[in-house]
Simulated scan of single mutants.
Amino acid sequence: MSCDSAQIYTAFILLKTADTPTNATMMKPEEIRITVIVDNTPLSDFSSEHGFSLWIEAGGSTLLFDTGRSTAFAANLLKLEIELSRADMLVLSHGHYDHTGGVAQVLREVPAMKVCMHPGALTQRWSIREGVAKPTDMPNEGKEAIRALNPSQILNATAPMEILPGIRVTGPVPRVSEFEDPGGPFFLDTKGAVPDPIEDDLSLWIETTEGLVIIAGCCHSGLVNTINHIRAVSGEERIASVVGGLHLSSANEERLEKTALALAKFPIGRIHTSHCTGNKATELFSHRLECPVSATAAGLRFTP
């Protein structure tokens, strides 16, 4: 299910009339620092797992973006000497287990933490492969921790919204590209009768003097759809960088080719691929696109 054009236009008007920073007050890309807490591959001495989590410092704000799958999150927090209490907010890109495994830990350690998410992140869901249904939703402990929060702590991202100064989330992304889909056999039932569109999938962006810094968790909405949506809502066409999981690891050749062709038309400064992007997509982009393309790893600290 996707937002209609009226919703997008309304969101655009709200964002552009609400004290949007000028170039003089926008942060510079070098003021943004990203630390990869969890990724599929690690730097030496760090733990890895099929999961994703970032620590994002942007201007005067700090946020935790996703919480990995299981043990790597806690282990790498210690090694990176990250104090969760420093985060202004936890942002959940969507409700899959490999992005929400540490939610309960975060809310135990910081009970007053604000959480930005789409309400659909609490949905029960499955992936079905070879007739076997596997739960893919947030662990129950995490769901219970979120439901126990004071409602004032939860930001329901049902439309584009500013969550911290200069930092915004997409809300549901319109599914327009004919070659992009959620990226897997995802369903809302164990029989495979009700496809899961993963409507709760969201990305965030930071407006900088050099253009947009776009950060995705899994990008189940499709990278091209996500970029087009953010550009339409923000009114900014330049893209300083794209960071995160792009869910192309199981994409066929046609989708990869069409994605590369579409990306080549955008003014992108750099791409940092993570988690579910896949080596094939990363290598294709590095050969087809004019901008630098590199893969992240758990333990990596970088400026986008």
Score class of each variant (00 low, 15 high):
V233L: 10
A193P: 09
T190H: 05
S234F: 02
G217K: 07
A260W: 08
A157S: 11
D189T: 13
P172Q: 06
G222K: 00
I214A: 01
I227W: 04
V169W: 01
I239G: 13
G184T: 03
I206W: 02
F187D: 14
L212T: 00
G166T: 01
G184H: 06
P267N: 08
G217P: 07
I230F: 09
T259F: 00
T226V: 07
H229F: 03
K191A: 14
F187S: 15
E253T: 14
R238F: 00
K191E: 15
R238W: 02
D200W: 02
A260I: 06
E199M: 09
E207S: 13
A260L: 08
E253Y: 06
L204P: 12
V194Q: 14
L212P: 06
G245H: 09
E257R: 14
T170E: 09
C218M: 03
I215C: 05
G171S: 06
M161A: 13
G166R: 00
E199A: 11
A193L: 13
I230K: 05
L155T: 13
P160C: 10
R168L: 05
L223A: 05
T226L: 05
I268Y: 07
A232T: 08
K265L: 09
I163L: 12
G192R: 08
G171F: 02
L202D: 12
A240G: 07
V213P: 13
F179R: 09
N225M: 09
L164H: 11
F266M: 14
